[in-house]
């Protein structure tokens, strides 16, 4: 093979050693049966051991479909996918034996107790009775659910259920943990408890792959991000790199009295301290190297915002720049 693809080059650079590259995809495509839309449209990525890898995108961007293909519960329609050195089409069961999955919908059994849910799952992976009990005890400890051990799942809060789902996904000591929207629908406190648990896993060397449409989650947890839009990868890198490459360092946010926004935005159109101006339904964003200087320039033009904010650029701005849309529309 003389002309290798970029992904294969990357794999080669990392050493073809499967202990370092845990998964890679090349031109990976998914068209749902009977559908015409490419839910995933020719994406490439490389997942390395020990990293926290994030798929960032709005709903319907193709993140969950990608996760389902990595988890070997959805057959790729085209392209190449290798997970733990194996082909999901041929070795699905062997791959699934070595990964953990936290689905978006918990898929816990509401009628069973917390402990029983773990025991059932241990059985699915072929753990013996004694080993399953031992593992359940360890995991309940990790998920801070020891006192809830005999409680029916239907009586748990959303955050506790999510922690139980994460505990369940660890039953088989997975090499890769796939988390689909791990904190969607949780209150802020429950999210922080969950992030703390995920950090702990990361420190223990578990490779995390997660999808999210929360930029703070992506910034907090991920070393490496791909931004997806309409089934394609539109940018890739660490959170810091993405911000440096696709946004100005600072952002000036302006809010106006209702109705005044159009007129004010018009007055700001050719302002030269801003690299770019973005008019959102509720505010105007000025992308700039120096937020305070931009604010001074705005006041010079006798533009009167009701509220102003100078802040550092975030992944939200990267997403807005790349796709022209806000992440959480």
């Amino acid at each position: 093979m003389t002309d290798r693809s970029p992904v294969l080059e990357a794999v080669a650079a990392a050493g073809t050693d499967p202990r370092r590259v845990l998964a890679y995809a090349e031109a990976l495509t998914k068209v749902h049966p009977g559908g015409e839309v490419r839910a995933v449209d020719g994406i490439d990525f490389t997942l390395r051991r020990g990293e926290a890898f994030g798929f960032l995108g709005a709903n319907g961007a193709g993140k969950s479909t990608t996760m389902r293909m990595i988890a070997c519960v959805s057959r790729p329609s085209g392209g190449t996918l290798r997970v733990l050195g194996m082909d999901p089409l041929r070795d699905g069961a062997r791959i699934r034996a070595r990964i953990g999955v936290v689905p978006q919908d918990d898929s816990l059994d509401m009628e069973l107790t917390v402990e029983e849910n773990l025991l059932v799952y241990g059985r699915y992976f072929g753990l013996g009775r004694a080993r399953a009990r031992e593992r359940a005890r360890e995991l309940l400890e990790f998920a801070q659910l020891v006192e809830k051990s005999d409680t029916k799942v239907s009586a748990l809060s959303g955050g506790m259920r999510r922690r139980l789902t994460i505990a369940r996904s660890l039953v088989n000591d997975p090499e890769i943990l796939l988390l689909d929207e791990p904190t969607t629908g949780l209150d802020p406190q429950a999210r922080h408890v969950l992030w703390d648990r995920l950090f702990r896993l990361k420190q223990q060397g578990v490779t995390l792959v997660l999808t999210t449409h929360y930029m703070d989650e992506a910034e907090q947890l991920c070393d490496h991000l791909v931004v997806m839009d309409h089934g394609r990868i539109v940018a890739e890198g660490s959170p810091r790199e993405l911000i440096e490459r696709h946004s100005s360092p600072e952002v000036l946010e302006l809010r106006f009295a209702p109705g005044a926004q159009q007129e004010m935005a018009h007055r700001l159109e050719d302002i030269d301290v801003a690299d770019r101006t973005e008019v959102l339904p509720d505010r105007v964003l000025l992308y700039t190297a120096d937020g305070d200087a931009a604010l001074a320039a705005v006041h010079d033009r006798s533009v009167q915002p009701v509220a102003t904010l100078v802040r550092r650029a975030t992944l939200e701005d990267v997403f807005l720049t790349l796709t022209g849309r806000s992440l959480t529309d």
């Binding site: 069961a93 034996a97 999955v101 919908d105 898929s107 799952y121």
Partner: peptide, 10 residues
């Protein structure tokens, strides 16, 4: 529960 089961070797 089927969704949980097919995420395992089953």
């Amino acid at each position: 529960s089927y969704r949980a089961a097919v995420a395992t070797p089953l």
